[in-house]
Design a protein around this nucleic acid. Sequence first.
DNA 1: ATGAATATTGTGTATTATTCTCAATAAGCT
DNA 2: AGCTTATTGAGAATAATACACAATATTCAT
Lengths: 151, 151
Amino acid sequence: MAIYTANALKAELNERGWRLTPQREIILNLFQNLPEGNHLSAEDLCNKLQEQGDPISLSTIYRTVKLMARMGILRELEFAEGHKHYEINQPYPYHHHHLICVKCNKTIEFKSDSILKIGAKTSEKEGFHLLDCQLLIHAICPTCQRSLFPN
Amino acid sequence: MAIYTANALKAELNERGWRLTPQREIILNLFQNLPEGNHLSAEDLCNKLQEQGDPISLSTIYRTVKLMARMGILRELEFAEGHKHYEINQPYPYHHHHLICVKCNKTIEFKSDSILKIGAKTSEKEGFHLLDCQLLIHAICPTCQRSLFPN
DNA sequence: ATGAATATTGTGTATTATTCTCAATAAGCT
DNA sequence: AGCTTATTGAGAATAATACACAATATTCAT
Ligand SMILES: [Mn+2]
Ligand SMILES: [Mn+2]
Ligand SMILES: [Zn+2]
Ligand SMILES: [Zn+2]
């Protein structure tokens, strides 16, 4: 399950003049051991780390999670909730997408390698370095279709 | 270019017990006449409306834009900037996706009807009512690849 | 057309996610 | 072991968005 070892992370960080810290290693490990389908907000992460006996400040969490997203290690998910969620960025056979109810935020994951291919081809064509590629489907779930009014 | 007439909007609103207001009509018109490739934040919208002589309060703008996204009239775009952008939600031949540089936010639009099909099929299969379907490619643009350090 | 019922607006205020500041600490390198 | 400087944690600052509520305007039934 572990794709990134601590050493691989260290190598990538050092290459850019950055450093491997215990905090970064702990956060990477947490994400790697997270069951698929879990999407953590910064707060979620903070709580989970506290519980597991590795408290890390919220500031550091925000910084780390942003850093790792920009390295392509984590995916930044913006559902309709007003805050970001993160999950590990898995390659091909595990790579997946999200179908979300904009009313209750119910989320369903699904796979599609043709989308992944389109993403890779498009970014290559434009000379971009691909980090993440996610199809986001905004929809209304069966339950919320039945509920009558606003919101 | 105008897909939604004011009357069509009124019908959809009334059907749910809501009302057509001048503000809603004006905002819809603005989006319909916006050239492709323009993505407006709430603030952008507020300024544009002011300039065109139709000032509308920021509260109403936030409410309207959220409402229209939930009706499937507007798409809610979350790039990497910390605030949402909106654009009109066009059907098939105009429907498109976004490739975004996470460092400088440079955005490139591209089309793909196979993705649109996957989105429709997936939401149908799960019994969801489809509102919007967007492939979001996070990447680093050629310029930012060259720029050395963090951020 | 008129009026009652109530959805919507605008103003101001509250909330909340995320970033910033800065002194203290510690990773990486020689 | 020591130097350089990236990183951390605590708290303050920022900025996007939501909320509260009185005033207004839309809808619908007379
Ligand atoms: Mn997921
Ligand atoms: Mn667009
Ligand atoms: Zn739902
Ligand atoms: Zn860029």
